[in-house]
């Protein structure tokens, strides 16, 4: 099968890749580019484990074709920490024990980051609804919600 050439930005770097037209962005990230931090939980957009942002909008990378990434800017979990510095959300997730098995964590972090970019002071309910597309089977969500709200608080403090 002939492959298509795609030029894109991933985590701030120019990236070119070849992919089959049917391949999803998730398959390209994991199998072609070896960015396995983005996880596949369902392949049907129901679990959120494969959440990435495309031009700052969060999407399920399992429901996004690799060829659609042409000219777009993508952020995955691998681009969240800056150098040796974790993102506040990442720090708060460990502090609050917001991950048990950790498989939902990359998608959850990306989703939480997009929430805080739009709404620096979300309520618990807004946070729960924003994250409703990210299934977690381990924690019962308590600690995740606490971590996101605490990160929001710290980020607000840093700005004021």
């Amino acid at each position: 099968m002939s492959k298509q050439h795609v030029t894109t930005q991933i985590n701030g770097n120019s990236v070119e890749f070849l992919c089959e037209t049917r391949q999803t962005l998730l398959e390209v990230l994991r199998d072609e580019l070896h960015l396995t931090g983005t996880k596949e939980g369902c392949g049907t957009g129901d679990c959120g484990a494969c959440t990435v942002t495309v031009d700052s909008k969060m999407v399920c990378s399992c429901l996004f074709l690799g060829v659609e990434a042409e000219g777009k800017s993508i952020q995955t979990i691998e681009g969240m920490a800056q150098g040796d510095k974790l993102h506040v959300l990442q720090r708060k997730f460990t502090e609050h024990a917001a991950l048990q098995c950790g498989i939902c964590t990359p998608g959850m972090l990306i989703a939480a980051q997009t929430l805080l970019e739009r709404n620096p002071d979300p309520t618990e309910e807004q946070t729960r609804y924003w994250l409703s597309g990210n299934l977690c089977r381990c924690t019962g969500y308590n600690q995740i919600i606490h971590a996101v709200l605490d990160a929001a608080k710290e980020l607000r403090g840093a700005k004021s």
Partner: peptide
Amino acid sequence: IGSYQIKSR
């Protein structure tokens, strides 16, 4: 329709 990830699409 679906999650916020889905609503973006």
